[in-house]
Design a protein around this nucleic acid. Structure first.
Length: 423
RNA sequence: AGAGAGGUGUCCGAGUGGUUGAAGGAGCACGCCUGGAAAGCGUGUAUACCCCUAAAGGGUAUCGAGGGUUCGAAUCCCUUCCUCUCUGCCA
């Protein structure tokens, strides 16, 4: 959530930023925010002074009662009646202003970093770099959805039987590959200084609001309606919410957490020609990294996270590219996002396997995640997160890129985790 | 799931309607004391919003959350969440 103060003090910058996201009516909305905030303040000032008067009278009554001057006390009481009426009216309009303001702020996405390119869709994303050789595959090359059948390692039909489409069953070496990747990712993160956490994979409403899945995106999440809980779409939700309503000591920075969780996404209406096999699932595994840092260091942290994710891809010997997302393609809450895409050589497509974002204080504002520095002032922290990594597309590209006439070669770095070199 | 107890500031802990943002203690910070430290003494030690601001200062709200009674609520009533103990069930 954007800060009203930021909007007031940097109106032009905020406006420019929102326009980069192609937000309709940005200027009018920002003016409305300031107007509502002004009314809110005026109402509060009025309400508070009446409340102060009322409190003073009550105090006086207390004193009179103690002195036994009952009649005088009764007399003063009559004055409080009308004050209370007025307070009630003001209170109501204050609440309305505040609710409207909040409602409006929820509709405003984060202001993009100045380096974010303009653009409307994924086509306008900027390719920052491309790394690695695209493998030459035998003429008999197959996409992963055929390979998994040939080698009987991932079974979509079984998943349909048990649950439904998009819930595959991993079997044998397929299951072991999953487990190896999870362990590899977690171990690497530990080496990079992250603390491992195992959060719940069901979250409550407050957590949904904290990281911005709610309101408006409940359609993306599976909901346990009886208990009003949501299955997480990403570990970002529970891990970042660990720090909801927290005031950190500045010395605790940087906070680096890593967690493995399954992720659940309804993906309503997003199925099409390009989502065969492992390209899009309702349930998938992901290792997520989260950092909470001092505002001065968040872009440094973003670069560090980007480099870290790239190091994983390099170790897995996968060709990849890094994109800087344009204003039109960036997530609602992000200020700057790098997407990492691996080349899956049989599909001949780039697949997004990680998205690393700096949210600056946008999430922190909703989360009330603050820190206290040497000057004893409490200020909003900056939050970042990234996938490191999402498994299914990594699996897809490993299978496709490493296929040979004799089987599928596993990346060397995974062999100690797998206990085998070939599928 | 049933019965009971309870949720107060960083922590422990008092407080059953009237200058209570909240006694007392611990911790922490700063200062004094000391050769240095401990002890001791002193001062300070929440958050949000608003007013006024150069600074200082002032106001409102917050004692799990929400609502109610009252001139006035940490204290009374209702709803709800959570924790603990016992019983039941169970990986």
């Amino acid at each position: 959530m954007l800060l009203v103060n930021t909007i007031r003090e940097n109106f032009e910058l905020v406006l420019e930023g929102l326009q980069k996201r192609n937000l309709a009516n940005a200027e009018a909305t920002l003016h409305e925010v300031l107007e509502l905030d002004k009314k809110r303040k005026e109402t509060q000032t009025e309400r508070d002074s009446l409340q102060a008067e009322s409190n003073a009278i009550s105090k006086q009554i207390g004193l009179l009662m103690r002195e036994g001057k009952k009649e005088e006390a009764e007399h003063i009481k009559t004055r409080t009646g009308e004050i209370k009426e007025q307070i009630k009216v003001l209170e109501e309009s204050y609440n309305t202003y505040e609710a409207d303001l909040r409602q409006l702020l929820y509709t405003l996405p984060n202001v993009p970093h100045h380096s974010v390119p303009k653009g409307k869709s994924a086509d306008d994303n900027e390719i920052v770099l491309t790394h690695g050789e695209i493998p030459e595959l035998p003429a008999s090359k197959k996409p992963h959805w055929e390979l998994i059948k040939d080698y009987d390692i991932i079974d979509f039909d079984l998943g349909v039987k048990i649950t439904g489409a998009g819930f595959p069953v991993y079997k044998g070496r397929g299951a072991r590959l999953q487990r190896a990747l999870i362990n590899f990712f977690l171990d690497e993160a530990l080496k990079a200084g992250y603390m491992e956490v195992q959060p719940p994979i069901l979250v409550n409403e407050d957590s949904g609001y904290g990281t911005g899945q709610l309101p408006d995106k409940e359609g993306q999440m599976y909901e346990a309606t009886m208990d009003k809980l949501y299955l997480i779409p990403t570990a970002e939700v529970p891990i970042t919410n660990i720090y909801r309503d927290v005031i950190l000591d500045e010395r605790a920075f940087p906070i680096k957490n890593v967690g493995y969780t399954p992720c659940f996404r309804r993906e309503a209406g997003s199925w099409g020609a390009h989502v065969r096999g492992l390209n899009r699932l309702h349930q998938f595994d992901k290792v997520e990294i989260v950092q909470i840092v001092h505002p001065d260091n968040s872009y440094e942290a973003l670069e560090e996270m980007s480099a870290y994710v790239q190091s994983l891809l390099q170790k897995l010997e996968l060709p990849y590219r890094v994109l800087r997302l344009c204003g039109g393609d960036m997530g609602f809450t992000s200020a700057l996002t790098y997407d990492m895409e691996v080349f899956s050589a049989a599909q001949e497509r780039w697949l997004e396997v990680s998205s690393v974002s700096n949210f600056e204080n946008y999430q922190a504002n909703r989360l009330k995640l603050r820190y206290k520095g040497e000057d004893k002032k409490t200020q909003l922290a900056h939050t970042l997160n990234g996938s490191a990594l999402a498994l299914p597309r990594i699996v897809a590209s490993i299978l496709e890129n490493n296929q040979t006439e004799d089987g599928i070669r596993m990346p060397q770095v995974l062999v100690p985790y797998l206990g085998f070199e070939w599928i």
